[in-house]
Simulated scan of single mutants.
Amino acid sequence: MRSPVTVLFLISFLFIQFAHAQTPSNQLTVFGQTGKLYLEHTVVAKENWYSVGRLYNVSPKELAPFNHLALTQPLAIGQVLQIPLTHVNFAQDGKKTPAETLIPVYHTTQEKEWMYRISVNHNRVPIATLEKWNNVNKDAVRPGMHLIVGYLRVKTALSALATDPAATPATAETKTVETKPAEARQASPASTTADIAKPISTKTPDSPIAKPISTHTSPETTRTVTQSPSAPPSPHFDGGIFKSEFLDNGKNSTGVAGIFKSTSGWQDGKYYALMNNVAIGTIVKVTETAGGKSVFVKVLGQLPDMKESVGLTIRISNAAAAEMSQTAERFNVQVSY
């Protein structure tokens, strides 16, 4: 007979797993604490400082220094950027201009973390506001829950995030942001408003923008991005964690695969790919023709328009290639999706 402590542990574990399963896969997750709140973004093909800045409504001149990088440094596919949340692009009072869209930003609750601590760590947003946004009582907070702690404000005409189903489109009834000094806006207490969208539970294909490749590091840690990860030369994740999400729709093609460098996949089994004519977020099964080994990769975007892409059907991350024990720059594959 199991002890009460064991039973309680199992119940808590199952609850956390259920909470994760119910979370929209394309949600924006906040990291850091009051004073340095940020999102994470994984760079895809053809992105630069300016396109990423437009996506999150942040100036490139602010974005680069926040990541301890120079604006003159080009971005690399798979590179992870921290996106600062400031009074310009982060709303906790429901205010936005008619040209802006609000997108929910979530925090994942931890063990022994209650609503008061969540409030303190996220610009002291009122507990009553958190309760209303999430339709939950403060005493019902449990580990593993995903709670809205604010809204990303993006320019509707400039950001692809504005098309997210969870976003709140700008309307004629939207409150106009008051023209206060920046310091006044930062100090203003958050309040609830009816025009903020509620979180959705409909699962949509993962967005490489909304779901970053790398895991969270502490705000005090300086992130150094390199072109090749310092990781085991041959990860083993039984094809990668996206294997369980693969849906075989009967589409197949054979061709040549190439490799791109990425910091993802070496420690977490998250493998990614670039492929034309396939929707972003699609899980693709890549099988090496010679050895028969397979990996399951998520499409980040199209093949870059460069000479290295000529003749390629797909490019997969170097961690995915390593799991296939593939060291050649190009090799024959079968692609299923």
Rank of each mutant, 00 (worst) to 15 (best):
V141L: 12
A64S: 14
Q334P: 00
A64Y: 12
V149G: 04
T202E: 14
Y337T: 05
P165N: 14
I118D: 01
I103V: 13
L81W: 03
G250L: 09
I103F: 07
R315I: 07
T168W: 03
G255I: 08
L85E: 01
A279M: 10
V149S: 04
V286S: 04
G250F: 14
T215G: 11
I241H: 04
Y272V: 13
L71C: 05
K243D: 02
V335F: 05
N89P: 09
Q227F: 08
D206V: 09
Y38M: 05
S230E: 04
T163M: 00
T129D: 11
K175L: 14
L158D: 12
L69C: 06
Q186I: 13
R124D: 15
V225D: 11
P233G: 11
S12W: 07
Q22P: 00
Q27L: 15
G291H: 14
I118G: 01
G144A: 06
G53K: 05
F13A: 14
G35R: 10
T171Y: 14
T202R: 14
S207Q: 10
L75R: 02
N276I: 05
G301D: 07
V58N: 03
R315P: 00
A128N: 11
T287V: 14
G53Y: 05
F13R: 14
V256F: 00
Y337R: 15
A273E: 03
K243I: 08
N252G: 02
F15Q: 05
A319M: 04
S207V: 00
W266I: 02
G269Y: 04
S51A: 04
T217P: 02
Q110I: 00
P24N: 15
V310Y: 09
P60Y: 13
V105M: 09
N276V: 03
S119N: 04
S264F: 06
G301C: 08
K132G: 02
S228E: 08
A99R: 15
D248N: 15
P208F: 08
E183Q: 12
F242I: 07
L130F: 07
P232S: 07
T226P: 00
F66P: 04
T34R: 02
L147Q: 06
I103A: 09
L69A: 14
L8F: 03
P304A: 11
P24L: 09
T226N: 11
R2M: 13
Q73L: 14
A70D: 15
K180P: 00
P4S: 07
F9W: 12
T168S: 08
Q27R: 13
S59M: 12
K61D: 15
Y271I: 02
E245T: 09
A160P: 12
F331D: 09
S244W: 00
Y272R: 01
D139S: 13
I77T: 12
I283F: 05
K138H: 13
A182D: 10
Q82P: 06
V284C: 00
P169C: 07
P74A: 08
D248T: 07
A157M: 11
P212A: 12
L37C: 04
R330K: 14
T29H: 06
R223C: 00
